[in-house]
Design a protein around this nucleic acid. Structure first.
Lengths: 213, 213
DNA sequence: TTGGACACGTGATTC
DNA sequence: TGAATCACGTGTCCA
């Protein structure tokens, strides 16, 4: 971060340079203007200018160019000095907000070395892609296993369901609260996961498995 | 996004300065003053560029170069016209890059309704937080289950390990490729997950479980 | 020196 | 109208 700071060529106020650093609260309001020399500086320095219509010329010259434009401008336009001032303040405020957002964004990105705008945006983009990738990998991983509720040959009459219930607790998996026994097999690649939900009994697990294996 | 278009108000030119500078001393070389009022400034030296809407700039050549130099103030300070032109072009380029990054960022955010800068940044921040949250939940979920390798009473001598191997395939879980049998129990809340890795044999599962259950 | 980065003021434009 | 947003040109700073 460099640059910056007020400069302000035209200054209206002091300016508070905000730079990138946090904080920067708003010191505007009350801007004091640098006095335009004196005389009246009233609040906004400008007005003075405004009154004097000097249309000065646009001057300068250089030969080239001049033309154009100006004509257009005169016509409607113009903005009262107070209004111009408001415009400046509003714009400053907007910039400050944007700048804060950028800082907040930068704070979320790990291992960020430079904090200039381009780097922050660029790294934010990369980071989001990375996170998305990670989420989808993790979700894929947990979804990869299909759930199949096997038919239970003797303990339960008929709740065969080759389904669809992708995940989740047993309670909501197939809407059967009342079942005393539920067996699910999840197959993922080479692995088989059996989920058995039943009352606690001696050797129940072994006995159940004996039915299948 | 609206706004825009070139506008280009202020000319490239050197500037006019009129009026005197604000007090503050600083006389920058040429200080331009606020123009409020208008007329001031306008003209462009070089560019024209603008043809309407945004487009990428690049524009035309420099035609400009020529002009300028002049001097009002001359002497030191001042930036040569060519230099000013380069400055303008560079700044334009930088802006364009930033703008593209912002568009790219916006493209990654789902359900983005407004695309103004503040919204894009604000929503990017929210989205990153959301993704982070999701990643950490998913990871937590998969980590939550502690893995305990039970002692195998007869099939294997001693590889009790109450450990630490948090996840992953059996192969890399405890660095034992040569084991013929490995049993892991993952306990998560009320559930117990037994992972059994062994050679295929008749009723092996039942027999193994008979040792534990 | 030069180039990159920044905030500023400002005219235009959109809602 | 009026408020919000934008891109621009510009002065200034720093490596």
């Amino acid at each position: 971060m460099q640059g910056n700071t007020s400069s302000n060529p035209s200054s209206i106020t002091e300016n508070s340079s905000l730079k990138f650093s946090p904080s920067s609260s708003i010191s505007y309001f009350q801007s004091q203007i640098l006095s335009f020399d004196n005389t009246t500086t009233q609040f906004y320095g400008f007005d003075r200018t405004l009154n004097s219509p000097k249309q000065i010329s646009t001057q300068t010259t250089k030969g080239s160019s001049k033309n154009q434009n100006f004509g257009t401008k005169t016509t409607l336009g113009k903005r009262s000095a107070a209004r111009t001032y408001d415009h400046i303040i509003a714009e400053r405020k907007r910039r400050e907000k944007l700048s804060q957002s950028l800082i907040a964004l930068a704070a979320l990105i790990p291992d960020l070395k430079k904090v200039d705008k381009a780097s922050v945006l660029g790294n934010a983009i990369k980071y989001i892609k990375e996170l998305k990738e990670r989420v989808s990998n993790l979700e894929e991983e947990s979804k990869k296993t299909r759930v199949v509720v096997l038919k239970d040959p003797e303990l339960n009459g008929d709740n065969y369901d080759s389904s669809s219930c992708e995940e989740g607790s047993i309670e909501n998996s197939c809407g059967s609260e009342s079942l005393l026994l539920q067996v699910e097999a999840r197959m993922s690649g080479q692995e088989v996961l059996l989920r058995i939900h039943c009352q606690k009994k001696n050797n129940i697990l072994v006995r159940i498995l004996a039915l299948y294996v």
